[in-house]
Nucleic acid binder design. Structure first.
Length: 422
RNA sequence: CGGGGUGUGGCCUAGUGGCUAAGGCGUCUGCUUUGGGAGCAGAAGACCGUGAGUUCAAAUCUCACCACCCCGACCA
């Protein structure tokens, strides 16, 4: 991609009303555009990151054996009345058609997935299974805040599992928990698996996944060594106590909730009278679990965790591009032709290796290009200029490190591929 | 929903009762420049959030409303 052609621009001035780092950097860098409180447009750069995050989520859910579906956001009032949540959930957006028929805008999908699963499930032989989707959610938050961390419209992966018995549900729940740990690790986040309300003191299990950042709004008591933690709302342990999981020391920490998993038991299957026939020919209630990851929030959490004074520092796994080629202009026409040719060669060679490249081909000064490269935060910056070309080389600099080195043009593609794997 | 703050060209700001609303960034034209947001000349771009009111006169004062941001409450 040529930067001159990319839709969406960086801004020299940070937006005045964006206070949290994720909002400021994502807007200033041209990743998202604020539309109204809690609602953003995602521009090509931001969408690229969002898709990478969602692809990681997708791969790990698929590895669990869950199957992807896609359910409607526009939902019938009747389903929500069936579960008693039409009146019970204050964040539920409700709307009326021109014929006064009422609908809900999905803030979650138990009301849709439960009857869906019910339709295709009669026998114990069809259980267990899990389905998931990555979709837009709507929540009528009284106060949207912190950029993409708490929106009224946002992206979420939600998975639902269906089981014949508690042990089977718990086994899947444990596997889902491990899959979540993998997702967040692949996104570069340091995440604690936190017992949350409904946690250790009730029969129902709930875990939050808290990405540790300075700006996190949730308070935790968590282990220095392992991933164990408790949300401060329910914590019975305190700072200085020994971790019940590994014996390490517990400390106060702050986190952003990027995922949450629940043992729903029969709460929704009761509402829809969702049974299966067991191996004795008797009807039994289906058990259910649900597992959410806010993917757009996850993008924001990554920015909160990875930024410096100059901009974002994307982890390789979710960066909008792998490589940012900065082509500096030369006043000498012949030299400029050589630079252009070298850039085209780099583009072609890297594309052949499936490396995603953003080329800053603008007729701008070096300072502006470097400032933008720092702001956008692509993990590897390659500068090609009159100076580097004289040595048949490019300057290699990784975002987040201070050192730059010279790399010969003829070995560049191989070195980039090697670096990407590292 | 309670409290606080802020609304001025695309972005960041100045202007706090008085000439035609000022500057920086960005954009466009031409020239110049090319390793950390460089320079010169010119141009376009603003019903100063909306409505009502006070006044000879309102971006500026008053009231209402709207929007956004922050704190709190809330967060199936």
């Amino acid at each position: 991609m040529r930067y001159s052609q990319l839709f969406g621009k960086t801004s020299k001035n940070a937006p005045s009303d964006a206070d949290s780092p994720n909002a400021r950097l994502l807007e200033q860098g041209g990743f998202v555009e604020h539309v109204m409180a809690g609602v953003y447009s995602w521009l090509p750069l931001g969408l690229s990151v969002l898709r990478k995050v969602e692809q990681i989520v997708r791969e790990e859910m698929n590895a669990l054996g869950a199957q992807e579906v896609f359910m409607p956001s526009l939902q019938p009032k009747e389903y929500w009345e069936t579960t008693g949540r039409w009146e019970g959930v204050d964040v539920l957006f409700k709307l009326k058609s021109q014929t006064e028929k009422e609908y809900a805008l999905g803030c979650t999908h138990e009301e849709v997935v439960t009857p869906l699963a019910q339709k295709f499930t009669r026998s114990y032989k069809e259980l267990p299974f899990a389905v998931y989707q990555i979709n837009t959610k709507f929540r009528d938050e009284l106060r949207a805040k912190s950029g993409v961390l708490r929106g009224r419209e946002f992206r979420m992966k939600d998975m639902y599992s269906f089981h014949t018995n508690q042990a089977d549900l718990e086994a899947f729940y444990a596997r889902a928990l491990e899959a979540y740990v993998k997702v967040f690790a692949r996104c570069g986040l340091d995440v604690k698996v936190v017992q949350a309300s409904g946690g250790i003191f009730t029969s129902k299990v709930s875990h939050e996944f808290q990405a540790l950042t300075e700006s996190g709004e949730d308070a935790l008591i968590a282990c220095e060594k392992c991933s164990f933690g408790q949300n401060s709302e329910i914590a019975t342990l305190k700072e200085g106590d020994a971790c019940p999981s590994c014996g390490g020391t517990l400390k106060k920490m702050k986190g952003i909730e990027v995922g949450n998993i629940f043992d729903l038991g029969t709460k929704y299957t009761d509402a829809f009278d969702f049974n299966f026939m067991n191996d004795e020919g008797k009807q039994e209630r289906v058990l259910m679990g649900c597992y959410g990851i806010g993917t757009s929030r996850l993008v924001g959490a990554i920015v909160e965790a990875y930024n410096d004074a100059k901009g974002i520092v994307w982890p390789k796994s979710v960066a909008p591009f792998d490589v940012h080629v900065v082509a500096l202009k030369s006043k000498d026409e012949e030299t400029q032709k050589l630079i252009d040719a070298a850039v085209s060669t780099i583009e072609r060679d890297l594309a052949a290796q499936r490396v995603e490249v953003l080329v800053d081909d603008r007729d701008k000064g070096a300072g502006e290009k470097f400032a933008d490269a720092d702001l956008i935060g692509i993990p590897l910056r390659l500068v090609i200029s009159e100076k580097t070309l004289a040595a048949n080389a490019v300057e290699w600099k990784e975002r987040g490190t201070a050192d730059a080195e010279s790399v010969p043009l003829d070995r560049l593609a191989a070195l980039v591929v090697e670096w990407l794997k590292a």
